Simulated assay, not measured.
Amino acid sequence: MRSSSDAGSRPGKVDSAKEDIPERHGSRSPGTLKVIGLGPGNSDYLTPSARHALKEADVIVGYKGYIELIDTDILQDKNVISTGMRGEIERCLKAIDAAMAGKKTVVVSSGDPGIYGMAGLVMELLHEKNLLHKVEVEIIPGIPALSAAASLLGAPLMHDFAVVSLSDLLTPWEVIKKRLITALEADFVIVIYNPRSRKRNWQLSEALKLVIEYRGGAVPVGIVRNAARTDQQVSVVRADQVDAESIDMLTILFVGNSKTRQRGEFMVTPRGYLDKYGHR
Rank of each mutant, 00 (worst) to 15 (best):
M1C: 08
S5C: 03
A7Y: 09
S9W: 04
P11E: 02
S16M: 05
K18Q: 14
K18A: 12
I21H: 06
R24Y: 10
R24C: 00
P30Y: 01
G31L: 06
I36W: 03
G37F: 03
N42H: 13
S43L: 12
L46K: 03
T47M: 07
P48L: 04
R51T: 11
H52Y: 10
K55G: 10
A57G: 02
V59S: 00
V59T: 07
I60Q: 09
Y63H: 13
Y63S: 01
K64F: 11
G65N: 13
I67R: 03
T72R: 15
I81M: 05
I89L: 06
R91G: 01
C92K: 01
C92W: 04
L93E: 14
I96K: 02
A99K: 07
V107F: 04
V108Y: 03
S109C: 07
D112L: 05
P113S: 06
G114L: 02
M118C: 04
L121W: 01
L125N: 03
L126C: 08
E128D: 12
K129F: 11
K129M: 13
L132R: 09
L132V: 05
V135I: 09
V137P: 00
E138W: 07
I139V: 15
I140P: 02
P141R: 03
G142D: 01
I143F: 01
A145P: 04
S147F: 04
A148V: 11
A148P: 12
A149C: 09
L153C: 02
G154I: 05
L157Y: 08
M158Y: 08
H159A: 08
D160K: 15
A162Y: 03
L169G: 07
L170S: 14
W173G: 13
V175T: 15
R179D: 06
T182A: 15
F188Y: 15
V189M: 02
Y193A: 04
R196T: 00
K199T: 14
K199C: 02
W202M: 12
E206H: 15
V211R: 04
Y214V: 00
A218S: 15
A218H: 13
V219L: 00
V221D: 01
G222K: 08
R225W: 07
R225I: 07
A227H: 03
T230D: 14
Q232S: 11
D240F: 08
V242S: 10
V242I: 05
S246W: 03
T251H: 08
L253N: 02
K259M: 13
R261N: 12
Q262F: 09
R263M: 14
M267E: 02
P270D: 10
G272P: 14
G272I: 08
L274D: 15
G278I: 12
